[in-house]
Amino acid sequence: MRNTGIPWAFIYGNHDTESYATTDKSELNELYKSLSYKTSRTLLYPYIQPNITGRNNQFIELRNSDNTLNQALFLIDSNAYTDDGFNKYDYIHDDQVDWYKENIEKLNKEENKTISSLIFFHMPLQEYETAYNLYEKDSNEVKYYFGSNDEKMIDKICDSEYPSKLFNVAVQLKSTKGMFCGHDHYNNMSLEYKGIRLTYGMSIDYLAMPGIARDTKQRGATLITVHKDSTIDIEQIPYKQ
């Protein structure tokens, strides 16, 4: 990615510092700081990070050519596991949600309007599961756009058992139009629920589980096109052999 010349950013997942990893959370954080925009001119990694749960929590202002704010892109760490043990997934904590809310309200005041924003995180919120269950029941509370959820683990949606208040706060603020996650390797569905697009990104994974290297239906990229009026289009770019 550093060789493309295109600015890029990422969010941490739950596998980055598991038992087989060669670096711990602190070491990995310092590594990416050393490769951040100051030295690479492409990686958007915050050298100074907010004093909240997680790493690499940041927001990026996407502005039009006339310097008007088009989107605020929030990258929020969904963390990894709780102290209860492996596969007890963590969640986006209250202090992270408060940080998101404070910055939305600050930008609203600066721009004198309700700004448009998108949120990116790794593990799905519980509302992804709620929306999918409604979709399975053919409910008119959700709108289907594309994709399928074909996860082969025990659950179709592998979310945390601990509820995050992020979705409800986002609904109240009326700023965020889309949320994007990964985590469930075979899921790539996009549904709208309570006015927010809940989208799984397509996968580039070849290693997570036996046989996935031979599977291609879930593989590809997700393209978000942002228009000058802050509207967005989301489409899948499937992998082609």
Rank of each mutant, 00 (worst) to 15 (best):
Y135E: 00
V142T: 05
D155N: 14
A170P: 12
N188F: 11
K165I: 11
E141F: 01
A170N: 11
Y135S: 00
N168T: 10
Q172W: 00
C158F: 08
M209Y: 14
E129R: 08
F146I: 06
L207F: 15
C158D: 15
L134Y: 06
Y132G: 02
M179P: 06
Y144N: 05
S175D: 14
R197V: 01
M202E: 03
G201I: 08
Y144E: 05
G195S: 03
Y193A: 01
I204A: 13
N187C: 05
Y162N: 12
L207M: 12
N133E: 12
Y200T: 05
S160A: 06
F180D: 02
E136V: 03
N149M: 13
D184K: 07
H122A: 13
E127R: 11
M189Y: 04
Y162S: 02
E192S: 11
Q126K: 14
P124C: 03
I196F: 01
Y206K: 12
I196K: 08
L173T: 07
E151Q: 10
F180V: 03
Q126D: 03
Q126L: 10
Y128E: 12
D159S: 14
Y186F: 11
Y186I: 07
I196Y: 05
D205F: 00
L125R: 03
M189S: 07
G178M: 14
K137F: 08
G182F: 05
H185T: 14
K137T: 07
M209F: 15
H185G: 10
L173C: 07
D159C: 15
M179Q: 11
M123G: 11
I154T: 10
S139I: 01
G182I: 01
P124W: 03
D138G: 13
E141R: 15
T130M: 10
M202W: 03
N168M: 05
E161W: 03
N188I: 02
Y135Q: 00
L207W: 13
Y145T: 01
E192C: 10
Y145F: 08
R197H: 12
F121V: 11
G182D: 12
N149K: 02
E141N: 15
D150M: 09
K152R: 15
M179S: 05
C158T: 13
S175P: 10
L125A: 09
P124L: 04
S164T: 04
G201P: 09
V171K: 01
L191E: 02
A131I: 01
V169M: 10
E129T: 03
Y132A: 06
M153E: 07
A208R: 00
K152S: 08
